[in-house]
Amino acid sequence: MTYEAPNRPRSAITFVALLVLASCQAACISPRIDAEVGNNAQPQFVTFDQLLHIHFTLEYPIAQVWPYVIGIESWIKANPIESIAGVRGETGEIIKISVLTNDNKKHEYFAEVIQVLPRQKLVMKYLPVKSTSGVIEGLYGYDVYELEEINGITQVSFQTYQEYGTSKMSGEEFRAIMELGMEASEKRWLEEYIPTLRALLRTDLN
């Protein structure tokens, strides 16, 4: 199996380059693939896919639940979330998430609402990381909230697809840290966010 050098016309690759490429293939199939599989003996960009699926039901109609989907800061409280631009719950809204790290540094992440189907679906895209003071140098991904009402009960599906990238640590170290973060995030959903949302919905009824 052979691979072309990334983005270079075949004719521009010299015979020597082909030999070098061929000898390299066993260890590093392609720089882009290496980033994916963590073949990073040398410092280079590595990625981690953070994927989370949370499904739960709320004993309330969708009309009552939807405002909380477009206002997640009232029940997702691990990190401060603010709507900083655009119209709340509409395409183009910009959301800022401030994360305080263990060393007391504040990192800001931004997301944009890119799709809204009222009372059905909301998609947010994470915007590129511009400050590289932390470990995370690349972030690409989406949060997707989907709602469906059956007999007055709302089924909520939250999914996040995020690719994080760094060149500041090895693939193994990065994976270990990110996996811990993912476990913590899932735990928060189950133990904090969903109970808080349920409590808010109960309060609404009173």
């Binding site: 990334p6 983005n7 270079r8 392609s30 720089p31 882009r32 994916e36 896919d49 994927l51 699926h53 697809y161 690719e163």
Partner: peptide
């Protein structure tokens, strides 16, 4: 459920 991540070759 089946989820793919799609990405370009290095350089595009």
């Amino acid at each position: 459920y089946y989820l793919l991540k799609t990405y370009s070759e290095k350089g595009g």
